[in-house]
Design a protein around this nucleic acid. Structure first.
Lengths: 207, 207
DNA sequence: ATGAAACATGAATCAGTATTCATGTTTATT
DNA sequence: AATAAACATGAATACTGATTCATGTTTCAT
């Protein structure tokens, strides 16, 4: 475990790591069922019974792999964070110009959100179920974002301005548009959303 | 109703409207206690017992004024919506220039959020507890926002661009900065946040 | 002043559901 | 093929907490 290669937080030990292929598969099935069920019903309405029956295992099996209901939830939030950051990093890593990277990153984020609406809602709910995971999720983002903006400013690719506040504002834009897709089911195609947002981010709205 | 003047939604009948001054006071006490308790602990952790004891009344008294736990929650979300819209409308109504109005509105919003952190968290949680109230909250905002942007565009006060998407993006910025205050407890003074955000909104970040 | 409507009480009900556990079954190693 | 460790089961436990209700108390119109 602790996956050399990525090196994520080494703190808390998971309930139980599977030691055979069968166990591995069962754990994954439960995690994936939890994503769907919690994403759809919310944390409180989603019972262990719902999750295990969706996963096709007995109720007690859940506790072989997770200590508590909250633990599986936290794991989902962490996974969401890793996936999103990875997706965005992939989409932007070869782009030198910051403004172009901004556009590509936003687009990749929105595609991801549309493909994983459950994970999106789970992160929202983390504010109440697991506040620390929630803060970590956004703080990890903000760290990278701010660093990118500072570098771009130093390189003269963007104008001067407080990188931290800008990072939060830009994340807010992405989040709001993601919510359009997942919660409000807008008809607008992602490229249109990205185009409008990009124009706002690059040029502002002054005449 | 699309809000002529005040005229809020007349649809659903509340559990029970008080008919005496005493009842009025008790109902208000419960509602206010609910705001504090639910805001602090979240919907699920906040029990009726917590709320009534915070309000200084017996448990059964709750059900004289509210049919269910969910009903008091929904009422809080509605109240939050009314208050925020009212606050922003007040702060911007005498400002002709759209960009200036944007700045004043954002500032008023952030001050409000700082003064009512509980209400802010309650709206977030509505996505799971009462999704319809959540959508109404943001849709009501968006309606006004979009109309304002369209008018400003027609008047040549801002550049051309899709008003709906812009409205969502700008709301996203406000929301993200509000979260900075309430969830992440930033040290930055509100005027600094507003200044950075305003520069972004007006001019963008291109060099 | 008085009776009916409003309001208030808090103990009892009732249901849901997270978690545990005693008991089997499967897998991997020898 | 035998055995210990892993894995799986689902019924039983244990507890929480929303809602109800039978019984007072207060308010107010007459």
């Amino acid at each position: 475990m602790r996956t050399a290669g990525q090196a994520e937080a080494p703190q808390k030990v998971p309930g139980n790591q599977p030691k055979t292929a069968r166990g591995e598969a069962t754990r994954k099935a439960i995690l994936s069922a939890a994503e769907r069920v919690i994403g759809a019903k919310g944390y409180n309405e989603a019972s262990i019974g719902h999750i295990t029956s969706e996963a096709g295992v007995a109720q007690g099996t859940f506790y072989i792999y997770f200590k508590t209901k909250e633990e599986v939830f936290s794991e989902l939030v962490l996974e969401m964070g890793r996936l999103v950051r990875h997706t965005i990093a992939d989409a932007t890593q070869n782009i030198q110009n910051r403004l172009e990277a901004e556009k590509a990153g936003l687009s990749a984020f929105l595609e991801f959100v549309r493909a994983h609406p459950d994970l999106y809602r789970i992160v929202q709910e983390a504010l109440f179920v697991d506040p620390e995971a929630y803060r970590e999720y956004y703080t990890a983002f903000e760290d990278g974002y701010r660093a990118g903006l500072s570098a771009a400013e130093a390189a003269g690719q963007i104008s001067a301005g407080d990188a931290e506040t800008r990072a939060w504002a830009l994340m807010g834009i992405a989040r709001a548009l993601g919510e359009q897709l997942v919660v409000f089911n807008t008809e607008k195609p992602i490229p249109d959303l990205v185009a409008t947002a990009y124009d706002l981010i690059a040029n502002g709205i002054k005449p």
